[in-house]
Structure formats: structure tokens, C-alpha cells
């Protein structure tokens, strides 16, 4: 194929195609954005009226009346703690696992198996355990619950990265005078960091968006955003405008996070070591 010699009409067609695809995915989001920015009365209007004034009243209401700040904090704390814990613990377990002499098929299979169980199956048993140790309605309950799927995920993902780092590097650094900890932090960690970043982002997203566990395990004090949004579907119908405003608020940090983290994600993909 000749490079850079595509006729203009072809380029135009390609762009039109791309725009259509983007619109297809963006339409619902744009609609939510619109709905969040108009008055409640307008929001229920069918057919919709396009010539409306924009207002922030839904956002103000959601944040001040519904205690959204509180839910935000809950979500952030739970997602952050469970991500940090699972990445730190997972990074070490995974490193150990990848450096074992055998191929550890049993252990690896067990880790994969945890990902095969539908989370909803675990909700009731975990709920029972959490209550029996008196952790209900605490952040800790959610953090522990999220660890059950985040930790195996991190271990599994990082295994691939560790296997890419030649064991000769561990050996070279041992001969250079490092203890195991020094080897891990000075040699292996820097090489794994992009992979860890990518894995951490994913764990954070999953925890931030998690709904089923949060619904069962959180109480008034620890309610997270997904549960709070769901609560806007009341007996008196769906509070559509508030729902849209809170959805936008829930998405916002993730959008900001991903634009900040983009370069790490790309690094995570182009990662490689010197052979």
C-alpha cells in the first residue's frame, strides 16, 4: 500500500464513518448531559423540546440535598483503598508466584477460577461473614469484598508482566549484591510499574462502578455513588433529571483520571525488556 496517497473522497468517507460510530456511542451520554442541564419539568417532556434554557439546579440539588458529597467520598475511599491494597499485595504475590521453579499450574488455576465465579453468588456469603464480624456498614466491608475480585485480577494480570522480565535480571542483581527486597524494588518494580499502573486503573474503575456488593453491604453511612444513583428510582417514579446529573458526576472523575493516566496505559502496552 502506498502511504499518504489516499484520495480526498476516501478520507472524507472514512471520517464520516468514524463520526457516525462515535455518535452512536456518544448519543446516550450526550442525552444524559442534556437532561442533567435542564429543569425537571423539561426533562419529562415528550417529545423533547430542544430550545430550552440550561441550568445547574439539578447538580446543586444532588450535591446539597441528597448528600452526594458524602457518597463521593465513600466511593473514592473504598475504590482507592481496595485498589492500593490489591496492587501492593497482588504485586508481591504475583512476583513470588512467577519466580517459583515449577510452573505452579494449580495456584494459577485457582486464581483464574476466582474470576469465573459470578460475583453475585458471593454476595450473600460475604454479607453473612461481614455481619458476623461486625463490619457491616463500614468502608472496610466493601474494601474486603472488592479485594476478593481485585486481588486475583491483579495477580493474574501482573504474572504476564513478571514472566516478561527475565529471571536473569533477578540473578544479576542478586550477584550485584541485592537482597530480595532490593531486587524487587530497585530492579523489578521499575520494569513492572507501567503494568501495575494499568492494572491499578482497571481495579479502580471496577471498584468505583461496583454495584451489587455495594447495594448489599453498604448502609446509610457508607453508601457509594452507584447505589445512590439507583436510589433515585423511587416509588414515585424515576427522578430523571437528578439521576442524569449524578451520573455525570459519577463519570467525571473517571474521565479526568483516564486522560491523566493515558500515557501510562500506553506504556503498559508497549512494555518490554532487553533480551
Amino acid at each position: 500500500m502506498q502511504l499518504g496517497k489516499r484520495p480526498v473522497w476516501q478520507t472524507t468517507l472514512i471520517y464520516i464513518g468514524l463520526i457516525l460510530v462515535c455518535l452512536f456511542f456518544l448519543m446516550p451520554l450526550l442525552w444524559i448531559l442534556r437532561t442533567s442541564l435542564i429543569t425537571k419539568a423539561e426533562a419529562y417532556q415528550i417529545p423533547p423540546n430542544f430550545n430550552v434554557a440550561l441550568t445547574l439546579e439539578n447538580y446543586i440539588e444532588v450535591i446539597s440535598d441528597n448528600g452526594f458529597g458524602r457518597y463521593y467520598l465513600n466511593s473514592a475511599i473504598v475504590a482507592l483503598i481496595s485498589t492500593v491494597l490489591s496492587v501492593v499485595l497482588g504485586a508481591m504475590s504475583s512476583y513470588w508466584l512467577s519466580r517459583q521453579p515449577g510452573n505452579m499450574t494449580g495456584a494459577k488455576l485457582a486464581i483464574l477460577a476466582t474470576q469465573m465465579i459470578p460475583p453475585i453468588v458471593l454476595v450473600i456469603p460475604i454479607n453473612t461473614m461481614i455481619r458476623s464480624v461486625g463490619l457491616n456498614d463500614t468502608w472496610m466491608a466493601l474494601v474486603l469484598a472488592y479485594l476478593t475480585f481485585n486481588l486475583p485480577y491483579v495477580i493474574w494480570m501482573l504474572l504476564g508482566f513478571y514472566d516478561n522480565v527475565s529471571k536473569e535480571l533477578d540473578e544479576a542483581s542478586a550477584i550485584d549484591g541485592c537482597s530480595s527486597l532490593q531486587t524487587f524494588f530497585k530492579v523489578i518494580f521499575p520494569l513492572i510499574a507501567p503494568g501495575m499502573m494499568a492494572t491499578a486503573v482497571y481495579s479502580f474503575l471496577v471498584s468505583w462502578n461496583e454495584f451489587v456488593f455495594a447495594l448489599v453491604l453498604s448502609g446509610n453511612a457508607t453508601r457509594t455513588i452507584p447505589v445512590a444513583i439507583a436510589a433515585l428510582e423511587t416509588q414515585n417514579g424515576v427522578k430523571i433529571a437528578e439521576l442524569c446529573a449524578s451520573t455525570i458526576l459519577a463519570i467525571l472523575p473517571i474521565v479526568l483520571l483516564s486522560s491523566f493516566i493515558k500515557k501510562y496505559l500506553v506504556n503498559g502496552l508497549t512494555f518490554g525488556s532487553i533480551k
Partner: peptide, 18 residues
């Protein structure tokens, strides 16, 4: 190894890539 005062050159070099 660190207490044996030896150095080793590996077949695949094993340089620290970072």
C-alpha cells in the same frame, strides 16, 4: 551470592533495561 564476592556475565547479558 551477594556474600561470595563473585561477578557473573550472563549469556543474555541481563542488563537492567531501565
Amino acid at each position: 551470592p551477594k556474600d561470595r564476592d563473585i561477578a557473573m556475565v550472563f549469556q543474555n547479558y541481563a542488563l537492567y533495561p531501565h
